[in-house]
Simulated scan of single mutants.
Amino acid sequence: MTDNGIAQAGRAVVVGGGSGMGQAIADALLGAGYEVIIVGRSEQRLADAVRELGDGKLTAIAADITDEEQVSRLFETVGTVDHVISTAADLAGSYGPITEFDFSHASGFLQTKLIGNMLLAKHARLAPTGSLTFISGIAAYRPAAGGAMVASINAALEGLARALAVELAPIRVNAVSPGWVLTGIWDNMPWEDKEQRLAAMAEKLPARRLGRPEDVATVVLSLLRSEFVTGTVLHVDGGHRLV
């Protein structure tokens, strides 16, 4: 602890750190002096992230957090860390009308975003003053038609954060809820007028712009430094919940 009450940098694991918000979080942590371990399923994506972020205090480990044996092995390898941040989410098949919903296709989202994060909580070797941070999402508050699975799992993840804040104390457990953030997810949308749609989305928000991965990273970093915040959801949504 420094004289001004801000915790010194330590070691952090970022699950999903190979792209998008996870990579931005890893970059912010490296800039703040943390030793960072990025984790993901794709070795190629992790290698690309290492090249982009630099290899200073950065390590990459390929692991699937839906596999308990791999999660256990991950923390046997990295040992005790100060913080674990998880952005993991497999959205494939997670949207669709409930009357036609194929739950077998959507199991990846349930497994990565809820069960996988529970496995992280089970096996993470966290310092007593450490923290666990989940990334939930605006769908828990502003669900869209056809998004029942996404809304439900995000809400469940925030409930998990509150429950674990009690169970794992004094380890702090929180969630960060992003709104519409400009990541690679929008590249997969079958829109011919993508730029116009994104601009219209931005205009709906009080912030009058869409989020950037760096916006989420800034809030995550503040949570790691705030030793009196636990069991909380911090919203990084440009005011989306208000409109």
Rank of each mutant, 00 (worst) to 15 (best):
I185Q: 05
L242Y: 07
G231T: 10
E52L: 13
I135P: 00
L74C: 01
A163E: 03
E68N: 01
I61K: 03
T133H: 11
K113N: 08
M21L: 12
A49W: 07
A163T: 06
I65E: 03
I98V: 10
A26N: 01
E203I: 03
L126N: 15
T129D: 15
V229Q: 09
D64F: 09
I171G: 14
A121L: 07
L242E: 09
A88H: 07
R11V: 13
G5Y: 05
G10L: 01
T2E: 13
A140P: 05
A9N: 13
A156P: 06
V39K: 04
R209I: 01
V15P: 10
A161D: 08
I37A: 00
Q23W: 02
E76S: 01
V81Q: 07
I153C: 09
P143C: 14
L182V: 07
R172G: 11
S177E: 00
V166M: 04
A217P: 07
G238N: 05
L182M: 10
R41H: 02
S226Y: 06
I138E: 03
A156S: 10
T59M: 03
M149N: 09
V219C: 01
S72I: 00
T230V: 05
G116T: 14
R51I: 09
G31R: 10
A106S: 14
L182I: 05
G137E: 11
A92L: 07
A140G: 03
E43Q: 11
A89H: 03
V233Y: 10
G179M: 10
G33H: 08
L53I: 00
L223D: 08
G239S: 15
I38E: 01
V233P: 09
Q8E: 11
A163P: 02
K122V: 08
E69T: 12
D215T: 12
L164R: 06
Q70K: 08
I115P: 13
I138R: 10
N188Y: 02
I6Q: 08
A62C: 05
S42L: 01
A144P: 00
G56K: 11
I85M: 02
T2W: 13
Y141G: 06
S107A: 13
F109C: 12
S107F: 14
G238Q: 00
V233E: 13
Q70P: 03
D82T: 00
E68H: 02
A139S: 07
Y141N: 09
R225K: 14
G18Q: 08
E214I: 15
Q23N: 05
